[in-house]
Design a protein around this nucleic acid. Structure first.
Lengths: 251, 251
DNA sequence: AAGTGGTCTAGACCACAGG
DNA sequence: CTGTGGTCTAGACCACTTT
């Protein structure tokens, strides 16, 4: 048996906890990787032995490892072993622009809610939400700020009856957090990112010169029943904002 | 036992095939969903019974189902069952801009290779690739066309010694396909998408007016050992191109 | 109470990489 | 040849949702 980096680590598994064992292990492995206890390229040691040492079955250990492989933190090689991915990646914006808007929306640097009201759905929003044009929907208009400067102008349409929206809650919490709180489980979203020059109105709102390049994003989000729960059309100041994200390739 | 949509389907599993059973099942379920044999919202029937009917163990059936859940085609609900995701999503650009450039690059609508040569790595590319500034690297400059019109101007830096690059192969196949063919397994990429006005040179190359809004993308791609294998800086005509992609939310 | 997915076990054999 | 992950089995009990 060759020496592996996990030999020196001890993992504390609590069988009385409601947290699944594979999840407890995954979290502890992840922490060890982040803290550098498991450096890039280090071998995890074979699954059978690891299972024996932890008092777990091999499938349980595999489930923990697999979840980290899916996250891109580990790489498996048949006949070789499981290694910590060779540096680089690690801690960059976990998913992509969904989360940068969503998560960040919770503890947001600053949001000014300009409009919250019910309106008849315009054609584009109605089509995206799968409802008839003119059906009443929530309409939200927000300005996102960073360091006191405007960064983005956000407009959203949300079907009626899904959740209560008011000015106060939107400034405090962000749209996606409100949805989660209302029992809506987000499942997927379709996005389209483009660019165009600023119209005079947009230029004024965002403190940019007319014609300045803006990033645009349209997004429709769906819950796990396939229902469209939100449609947004947003513009970002290209001079102050870009979408950063990491992709994992499925092989 | 309630009637489920899978009752009427028959799956053909070949135990002599080297293709894993869970994968055979997953492919056939996926095909049934795409062809509409399993419509949106239809129940798959419980895993135990399905396993029994197919002559498989439950974990194997679960593995097949899980792979489709990860793809966003199915949704599991404890106490309820497994359902086909309620329409909508289905067949939109499988991942995101990586693939739109990558896969599409194979059977690309048209690519004009402007430059292929070795150059000392400029500062940005060197930093991205983790090599010393001035180290010789491959440099590639391409114009992407659609319907005979320019759509994007692509520049790439590739470390030496990874693969052979020449004008001919690049026009025929695309960079990422060449890499795969050279035994490089792509693992992840970091991207940054922004926008800016066209410089005079860019305007001329892309047949846009000066100052027109352009989409910009910078990407560094890594293989499964964590090695940076490519860095690209690209500009797209915003009037003719946008990034479309779908996100899956991990809950 | 009944039915579902979620987790877990303790084995087995195979395919592939490396010395 | 040896060691590794990849696949597969046949059970078990639990947690949750619905009736």
């Amino acid at each position: 048996m060759t020496s592996t980096a996990t030999d020196r680590l001890d993992f504390a598994l609590d069988r009385t906890s409601p947290v699944p064992l594979y999840y407890q292990l995954a979290r502890q492995l992840e922490a060890a990787i982040e803290q550098g206890a498991l450096g890039p390229g280090s071998l995890l040691g074979n699954e059978i032995e690891l299972a024996g040492r932890l008092g777990l079955s091999r499938p349980t250990v595999r489930q923990a490892i697999q979840s980290l492989v899916d996250k891109g933190l580990l790489v498996r090689r048949r006949g070789v072993g499981t290694q910590v991915v060779h540096s680089q990646v690690k801690r960059p914006m976990e998913l992509t622009s969904l989360y940068d808007d969503l998560q960040a929306a919770g503890h947001s640097p600053g949001t000014r809610v300009l409009t919250v009201e019910k309106r008849p759905a315009p054609a584009e929003a109605a089509a995206a939400l799968g409802i008839a044009e003119g059906t009443p929907v929530h309409y939200v208009e927000r300005l996102r700020l960073a360091h006191g400067e405007p960064v983005a102008y956000l407009t959203n349409h949300v079907p009626e009856g899904l959740l209560g929206l008011d000015h106060e809650r939107l400034e405090a919490t962000g749209l996606y957090r409100l949805m989660r709180g209302a029992g809506i489980t987000l499942h997927s979203a379709r996005q389209s990112v483009g660019a165009r020059g600023a119209t005079p109105e947009e230029a004024a709102r965002l403190a940019e010169p007319e014609g300045a390049a803006l990033l645009t994003m349209r997004r429709t989000a769906y819950d796990d029943t396939g229902r469209a729960v939100e449609h947004g059309a947003h513009v970002y100041r290209a001079s102050r904002y870009s979408f950063e994200f990491q992709l994992l390739v499925r092989n």
